[in-house]
Design a protein around this nucleic acid. Structure first.
Length: 255
DNA sequence: CCCTATGTTCCCAA
DNA sequence: CTTGGGAACATAGG
């Protein structure tokens, strides 16, 4: 989410009000997009981890970057490796670059814009969280990453939020107290706001619209730090698999 | 070379 | 309904 929010804010200042002059799909896996030429970009918004460009005539161009997707803005139309799509404007070109080819794009109508999940950026409602958890048995980390419950928390940030909240990733959600949920909400706010301010986390190849790496990797306390000392309590950070994803945590201060 | 990892989500089966 | 596992794909590292 912080990476998508970064692109969203940067794109707003570049393409809002601009007319699409051309679209080239270089990866047939993305499907086809017809009739976009001459339409204007009216707004750019983020919905969870999706990026939605509202166009004239009332439809949205909706992107999801998945694992390795990113956008680059350049004045000249030079195609770098893994470029999957090019949107051309008078001022320059927007490139979708995606080595693993999981990213998706779709045309959506206005009515599809509705999203019931609570957005992760901004205050999470503690009672909403505990009610959504109810009697469910799944681990709290899987719950935080369920995009139908909270829109926007991915693997890196789930690990960091739970560490900051002092909650073990495998705890069943039905066993969390009101105080636990408050700590989760507080931790999510602190982590995500800072990550957005840092323009995301560059572990390997994430870059912003202008090719600059993010900065939040300098603030990671557990993610990718197996074997290192927990900055909070000095215990050794451990890694486990949870829901098929690498999960880092401190056994000392996460209970 | 083979096996395992990696930022996500969808689909299926227990 | 809920939960967990594998697949979609490309690349890097042990």
């Amino acid at each position: 989410m912080p990476e998508v929010e970064t692109l969203c804010r940067q794109l707003r200042r570049v393409i809002v009000g601009e007319e699409i002059l051309g679209i080239e799909i270089l990866d047939p896996r993305l499907g086809s997009l017809e009739g976009l030429e001459r339409r204007k970009i009216l707004s750019v918004r983020r919905q969870g981890k999706a990026l939605k460009l509202k166009m004239s005539q009332g439809t949205f161009l909706s992107f999801h970057l998945r694992m390795t997707g990113r956008f680059q803005w350049r004045p000249d139309r030079d195609i770098s490796p893994h470029t999957r799509l090019v949107l051309s404007f008078r001022k320059g070109h927007l490139f979708l670059i995606d080595p693993r080819r999981f990213a998706t794009v779709a045309l959506q109508e206005i009515r599809e814009a509705f999203c019931p999940a609570q957005d992760s950026l901004g205050d999470l409602d503690t009672s909403y969280l505990s009610e959504a958890a109810g009697k469910r048995q799944l681990p709290v980390k899987s719950f935080l990453m369920d995009q139908r419950v909270i829109a926007g928390i991915g693997n890196i940030y789930a690990c960091e939020i739970l560490h900051r909240a002092g909650i073990h990733p495998t705890r069943k959600v039905c066993r969390l107290s009101g105080a636990d949920w408050s700590r989760v909400a507080e931790a999510a706010k602190a982590v995500l706001i800072r990550a957005v301010a840092c323009r995301g986390t560059t572990i390997s190849d994430w870059r912003d619209l202008y090719g600059r790496p993010g900065g939040y990797q300098k603030h990671l306390r557990v993610y990718g730090r197996e074997g290192e000392e927990c900055p909070g309590c000095g215990e050794v950070v451990r890694r486990m698999m949870l829901g098929g994803r690498g999960t880092w945590y401190c056994p000392g201060c996460q209970r």
